[in-house]
Nucleic acid binder design. Structure first.
Lengths: 114, 114
DNA sequence: TAGCTTCCCTTGCGACACAAGGGGAAGCCC
DNA sequence: GGGCTTCCCCTTGTGTCGCAAGGGAAGCTA
């Protein structure tokens, strides 16, 4: 069985980047956005989220800045940089192509592919 | 960047099972089927394929039987069992639901999800 | 004061795709 | 015959990464 972990692996960065397209957001907010915008289907654990944010930061795709959250808490806001925006476009494209390839395979109705 | 490895991870078993829906096929043939039916987009390395087949066999989803290939070579043919067929249905469903969830998130056009 | 929520982080673990190796047998070309 | 390619099977080592489980601090509510 493909586990949730396996599935997430292919789209985690993609979803994080996407969540930042409307402006900076802190980590907790990123997880919440993903949860909300998938109707609760996708849940990102904190032990998954924070290392991922650090990876993206290390790659120069997002930039952190400490600030204060809506709830008056100390929070690290991540901003999508130019490179991050380009990466998002590339990731979306890769993902869509992959989904299409799999769909093509699953749609096969004869033993030998056309 | 989501690597090819990350992407494969979510659908490898799915694709293998699918390739067996028309009857037994040996490992090499499974890899070839995937390659052909995705137009060359997806390539399964042998170091990925054989361990995966063994995992599926250990789970009782596929059953091996030694035979002779079309090219007169000794080959291990895998057959989809009843449990394997059920697993395939489940995996397809899981995958499609996941794809739909991601699509929903990517389709967001406002900061706060509906 | 106690307890819940928000927000950040780390460590240890298990799973697994891949690269790189190995082997053996069949077919072909010279 | 000897060499090469193709087919078909396998394993080991390495690196990556999601997750469970931990910890901590600060704000709010009662």
């Amino acid at each position: 069985m493909a586990t949730d972990a396996d599935l997430l692996r292919s789209t985690l960065e993609l979803l994080i980047l996407k969540s930042l397209t409307w402006g900076p957001r802190h980590g907790y907010g990123v997880a919440d956005w993903v949860k909300q915008s998938t109707g609760g289907d996708l849940l990102i654990e904190e032990g998954t989220l924070y290392p991922a944010l650090h990876r993206l930061e290390a790659k120069g795709w997002i930039e952190p800045e400490w600030g204060v959250s809506e709830n008056n808490r100390r929070a690290k806001f991540y901003k999508l940089g130019t490179r991050g925006r380009a990466a998002l476009r590339a990731e979306v494209s890769t993902w869509e192509r992959y989904v299409a390839s799999v769909a093509r395979a699953l749609a096969q109705t004869t033993a030998e592919p056309a």
